Every structure is written in C-alpha cells, then in structure tokens.
Amino acid sequence: MNCPKCDRRIDSQAIKCPHCNNLLKGFGHPGIPLYQAETGTYLCDRCYYHQDDSCNYPQRPYAETCTMFHDANEPLIAETPKFKYPAGLAGFKLWCSRNRSLLIIFSLILVSLVLVAMG
C-alpha cells in the first residue's frame, strides 16, 4: 500500500504514514478506513450519500477526508450468490443435515398423529 499524500510504501495497518505523518485510518483505529480525495478535489462530488442527501458530515460538500465515503458508481450492497442444494439424494442428505431440528419436530408430529389414529 502507498500513502495517498507522499506516495511512499507503507504498512496496510498503519494508522499514520511514518514518512509524512498523514492520517490514514479514521479515528486512529486500524479497522476504520479513512478515504482521502486527491489534492484539489472533494470526495462529495462522487459520494453516494451526498447524492441521495443522507450525508451529515460537517465538511460536506467540501470533504477531502471521510470515513463513510461510498463511490456512487459502485453498488451499495454487493450481491451474494444464493446457495442451491445439489440435486438428488446428495441434496436431500445435505438438507436433512442442515435442518435436523425441523426433522425432529415433523417426526414427533407424525408419531403423535399415528398414535391418535390407532387409539
């Protein structure tokens, strides 16, 4: 990873650039990325939250750094592929292993119905 300010190589978990002292992580926390605009530009110009007017950042619309930036050209929520059970007996076995408690409940209901019908 390179520092966006001095363009020198830095550790991806670094909170500040050791060369130019540029803040790289939001609130000094390594888990919160701090997005930074290039010199002379603003993040709000291409931010999803600025476009839908839900941003409450105090530096809006002239924010050069932001922890909530989301590029408006990218989808807000990445689609996850839906799980499909394999066909045939293998799919049935997998469904049974994942839904064991449901099978127990259905079995108890079936046994109770058989006992009522016999009695």
Results as ranks from 00 to 15, higher is better:
1 M>D: 03
1 M>R: 03
3 C>V: 00
3 C>Y: 00
5 K>W: 00
5 K>I: 00
7 D>E: 12
9 R>T: 08
9 R>M: 13
11 D>K: 12
11 D>G: 01
11 D>S: 07
12 S>V: 13
13 Q>G: 03
16 K>I: 13
16 K>M: 10
18 P>N: 00
18 P>W: 04
19 H>F: 15
20 C>S: 04
20 C>V: 01
25 K>S: 04
25 K>G: 05
26 G>W: 08
29 H>I: 11
32 I>W: 05
34 L>S: 02
35 Y>C: 09
38 E>D: 13
39 T>S: 12
40 G>V: 03
43 L>F: 12
43 L>E: 06
44 C>A: 15
44 C>F: 10
45 D>A: 13
47 C>Q: 09
49 Y>N: 15
50 H>R: 09
50 H>T: 13
53 D>V: 02
53 D>P: 00
54 S>C: 07
55 C>S: 04
56 N>G: 14
59 Q>S: 15
61 P>Y: 01
62 Y>Q: 15
62 Y>S: 11
62 Y>G: 10
63 A>E: 08
63 A>M: 06
66 C>T: 07
67 T>Y: 13
68 M>E: 10
70 H>Q: 13
71 D>N: 14
71 D>L: 11
72 A>M: 15
73 N>H: 12
74 E>N: 04
75 P>H: 09
76 L>V: 10
76 L>M: 14
77 I>L: 14
78 A>R: 09
79 E>M: 04
83 F>Y: 06
86 P>Q: 06
88 G>V: 02
90 A>P: 01
90 A>S: 07
91 G>N: 04
92 F>N: 08
94 L>Q: 14
94 L>C: 05
94 L>D: 13
96 C>G: 11
97 S>K: 15
98 R>F: 09
98 R>W: 11
100 R>L: 15
100 R>Y: 10
102 L>R: 13
102 L>W: 12
103 L>N: 09
104 I>N: 02
105 I>V: 12
106 F>V: 07
106 F>Q: 06
106 F>M: 15
107 S>G: 14
107 S>L: 15
108 L>M: 10
108 L>P: 04
108 L>I: 06
109 I>T: 07
109 I>S: 09
110 L>A: 12
110 L>R: 03
111 V>S: 13
112 S>H: 05
112 S>V: 08
113 L>P: 02
113 L>Y: 08
114 V>T: 06
114 V>D: 00
117 A>H: 03
119 G>E: 00
